[in-house]
Design a protein around this nucleic acid. Sequence first.
DNA 1: GGGTTGCATGTCGCA
DNA 2: GCGACATGCAACCCG
Length: 398
Amino acid sequence: ELQTRMPYEVDRLNTGETFSAPSLEKRKVEDFSEKFINGNLRIRLRDIVENGNAGIIGEEQSQTPSSLMEDASAQQFGISIPYKSLSESNSQIEGSVNALQPAPPPPFTKHFHGSLHNGVDSSVDGHIRNGKPRTDARGRSQLLPRYWPRFTDGELHQISGNSNSVIKPLFEKMLSASDAGRIGRLVLPKKCAEAYFPPISQPEGLPLRVQDSTGKEWIFQFRFWPNNNSRMYVLEGVTPCIQNMQLQAGDTVTFSRLEPEGKLVMGFRKATSATPSDQDNETSQIGNGVSTKGDAELDHSPWSKVDKSGYIAKEVLEGKSSIRKRKSSTLGSKSKRLRIEKEDMIELKLTWEEAQGLLRPPPDHVPSIVAIEGFEFEEYEDAPVLGKPTIFATDNVG
DNA sequence: GGGTTGCATGTCGCA
DNA sequence: GCGACATGCAACCCG
């Protein structure tokens, strides 16, 4: 899709070096992914929806460090972002839709001095941190693919709500057993923590305000432990949040930033509905989630694969083919107990008609009829109600 | 005694 | 071979 249909240009770090997707060859995709890291890719979801184009703006982060400082100083905590329908949203999605790579870290610079931090770094000088050089562009590009944010449209939309905020996906992490355990400590990938969270020089760290996708705010202690001449970054106090989200080992938490507010937003993805979690297969996922044809293709979730026979095959916990391939995924060797065998997968097949049957118009809403390419569609302002058919079955005891 | 905290250690992926 | 990370575990805290 990237190669053939997505009209975009990416300007890498405003250098004027742009990349035109149609000219990309497959072997270039991996290289291209790096451009996504080093450059700042913005996708206006609204453009995708309204114009059928992925309106990607190749521009470096629009905010200057000084504006970030202003935003930080003017930060209003606890802003709730109510959900609003896509058509009403002015949100700009910056960075990844599904499988793009994180935008570069903000220009972290001087150390944080406040008692609470919302994730906006108020620094100016971006090179020295804790006595060590900050992660440079190359370092950022070396963020392990398993931590690249892979947000679906829905996830991004849920985060952005109806605000005018730009969502900058930062990173994500699959919860380990200890992360999801009762200890309440979430181990953060070092590079991600250093790139996207405020700099800390003391092991005690600092409190970090994080908003979840429902608007609820949590305060975690962002800190580190000395570890083999290095550091191990953790978020402490995550148990209530994890319990609230009903997360468990194998689920994925996502971190993104709302700009210009600078709020850190934490989302999650349940393992049973995780989408492109084949995190070793980056190239196949680049561009996944960027549609040029409007709503009908806006569900870029690999869950819904429509084959020619008109069936939707939903493969829970990824496609069959990818399960076997994921030897080195996050669920791989380090989390053997989480590995899910092929036979544990659930496959749901239903026809389009059956799928339609699951959708109910919201009550008290009269649709407007829209004709698109000769087909008439009922258009509703609100999302449909998802119904569940009754399934009758008998077992060996009747 | 149970829970929490801080650090140590083993494993494994990556350079 | 090194570094990151998952987890074990001892010391500490508190009811």
